[in-house]
Write a protein that binds this DNA or RNA. Structure first.
Length: 342
DNA sequence: AACGCGGGGAA
DNA sequence: TTCCCAGCGTT
């Protein structure tokens, strides 16, 4: 696969002519680039902005990240999703402190060895923070290049990503490697939009784009269809005793691992069934009120929930009792559970 | 290669 | 509703 060498210059000129101002672009230090790239994995720029600023205030350098407490990390990441990312990043920070004296390694190969850093992120850090000619092929770049080259294969295929990586490597500039990496993603984010909505009139490389020439931008890229989500029914209990609410820590593995939750059980229980269930759990309840239904959609699963507010006489064991203020300020409660309020 | 892993904004 | 997002690690 061959990419026109002219793309490099065209994209750099276009990038210079005006690109988005983003917090992590103000100071592209290795740490800033690293943290921003981890946050941006499968996450939109607009969602990341406030998280990035807050994160940098609390944990301004690698040493601080390496030493941070779990609950602090969770609270900083709460609502961003894919929580594994922040723990892997901390593991990497510890490795960098121990093995690299607190300095981010620079080579693509070394970066790739760190937890949470895959081919895309290693390329992004190597090029943006360390100015090396290493491509970073993300979802934007896949879409842009699929259209430019008229790629007929499904873009999720590993081989397609490999082909794009090596085709890009050949046309990387000598200087401004990071700007070139970002120009490709910027193009995908603001011009070469998905779902047949590209703004080809604004595109600096339309002259080299096969999909544009053939009027096929609405057909490309080709993506494999995804599997339907499974549905899980749950009954969620807001146990209230005085001004305290019961929460508990989720399991260490699986969905939302390490975060907190309201006590809940499988199945959609009626009020009578819920009362019976709670009694079997040894909970003495004073009053139970239906809170209605809520639906929460994850990528691979959908929760259909019914909630009950339960007034209790005492704070029973196996849970932690906290105020709503604590839930706000200290507890990382997934948004799935925030559908229900006292 | 397929799957698990979040959440929200836009069409 | 569906789609997609500056993906990674495990199986």
């Amino acid at each position: 696969m061959i990419l026109p060498a002219a793309l490099t210059k065209q994209l750099l000129v276009w990038y210079d002519s005006g690109h988005r101002e983003l917090p992590w672009r103000e100071n592209p230090s290795p740490y800033y680039v690293w943290v921003s790239e981890i946050m941006l994995q499968q996450t939109r720029v607009e969602a990341v902005k406030p998280y990035f600023s807050r994160f940098m205030k609390v944990l301004p350098n690698i040493a601080a990240l390496a030493a941070a407490e779990e609950e602090v990390l969770l609270k900083l990441w709460e609502g961003l999703g894919y929580y594994r990312r922040v723990f892997q990043m901390q593991r990497a920070a510890v490795i960098i402190m121990e093995r690299y004296g607190g300095r981010m390694p620079q080579s693509y190969a070394e970066l790739l060895c760190l937890p949470g850093i895959g081919e895309y992120t290693a390329g992004a850090i190597a090029s943006i923070a360390f100015h090396q000619p290493v491509p970073a092929v993300d979802g934007n770049v896949l879409r842009v290049l699929a259209r430019v080259t008229g790629e007929e294969r499904e873009i999720q295929l590993e081989q397609v990503k490999k082909d794009f990586f090596f085709a890009l490597k050949k046309i990387y500039p000598q200087k401004r490697c990071g700007d070139f990496t970002q120009s490709l993603m910027e193009l995908g984010a603001v011009v070469c939009l998905p779902n047949g909505m590209p703004k080809c009139g604004d595109c600096p490389i339309a002259d080299w784009c096969l999909a544009f020439q053939q009027n096929r931008t609405d057909e490309l890229p080709i993506k494999k269809e995804k599997k339907p989500r499974r549905i899980e029914e749950k009954t969620v209990f807001l146990l209230q005793c005085g001004d305290k609410i019961a929460v508990r820590k989720r399991m260490e593995k699986g969905l939302l691992s390490g975060l907190w939750e309201y006590p809940n059980t499988e199945g959609c229980l009626s009020k009578i069934e819920a009362e019976k269930y709670l009694k079997a759990q040894g909970i003495v309840l004073e009053k139970i009120t239906a809170l209605g239904k809520a639906r929460h959609v994850f990528t691979h699963v959908e929760w259909h929930m019914i909630g009950y507010l339960v007034l209790c006489r005492k704070e029973y064991k196996d849970t932690v009792w906290v105020t709503s203020k604590q839930i706000e300020q200290e507890i990382s409660l997934p948004s799935a559970f925030r559908h229900f309020k006292v």
